[in-house]
Simulated assay, not measured.
Amino acid sequence: MTTAQERTATDARTLLDEEMRATLVSNTLDKLPQLTEEKAERGVGQMLAFLAACAYSDRPLSPSPLVDDFWHAFLMYTQAYQEFCERKFGKMLHHKPGFLDRDEHGGGKALRARTVDAITLAGYEIDMEFWPELDLAECSQCHANCSDSPNHPPTRT
């Protein structure tokens, strides 16, 4: 009989050197002064975990709006961002804004759930404060009587 060993999740902030993390925290705080320094530091970690998941996923993933703000902060340092991607993932991770076909990829909540699952599978910590749309229902699947749930009663016309 084989037993599964539980793996400890890794803090993705360790993927990036301290100096660049501090720069991203500072720049994001300038743009979003309502954040605390501690939350901005955690946000950088969630953005890095998202990027790591994207590097290994064969399906599209989607950042939360706040995680996307941290990604934009990193993208502003194009050379550092490109070098990071090449060094850590062996390829450039391009930002492709736009909407994915809902029928093919699911809606926003389904994409974010897939993203969080991919981050977890990649071995990184999830900080649910950065994925708030997933905290709306106490379930692990998209059947919480949401508007797109099969359990949701049809709308009357």
Rank of each mutant, 00 (worst) to 15 (best):
L16C: 02
L121N: 03
E18P: 01
D101I: 05
P60L: 08
H152S: 12
E37N: 05
L35R: 02
A122Y: 13
T3R: 08
H143R: 10
E6I: 15
F70C: 00
P97C: 02
G107Y: 10
M92E: 12
R13V: 08
E86M: 14
E19R: 12
A52W: 05
F99E: 12
D69S: 13
Q46M: 13
L61P: 03
H95E: 05
T120M: 03
D58A: 09
T157D: 12
E41D: 15
T36S: 15
P154D: 12
L51A: 04
M1E: 10
S149V: 02
E37M: 03
L111S: 01
K31R: 14
H143F: 08
Q46Y: 02
G98E: 03
I126C: 02
Q141I: 13
Q79E: 15
Q141T: 14
Y77F: 15
L100F: 09
Y81C: 07
T14Q: 11
F130Q: 00
F74A: 12
A40W: 07
N151G: 06
H105V: 03
G90S: 07
D127P: 02
A22D: 14
T78W: 14
I126F: 04
C142S: 08
G43H: 04
N27C: 03
L66N: 06
F84Q: 04
R13F: 11
L51V: 06
L75F: 13
R114E: 00
Q141H: 12
E133V: 05
A144M: 07
V116C: 02
N145W: 09
G98R: 00
A122E: 11
R156D: 03
G108P: 02
T78N: 10
M92I: 14
S26M: 05
K88I: 11
D30M: 02
R7V: 11
L111T: 00
S64G: 05
S62Q: 12
W71A: 03
F99K: 06
F99C: 02
T2D: 12
G123F: 01
T28F: 04
E37H: 10
E41K: 13
C85Q: 06
A80N: 11
G107N: 15
D103F: 13
V67H: 07
A12Y: 04
T115G: 00
D11W: 10
Y77P: 01
F74R: 01
F89H: 01
L32H: 11
V44Q: 03
D103T: 14
E83L: 12
A52H: 05
P65E: 07
A73S: 15
R87P: 00
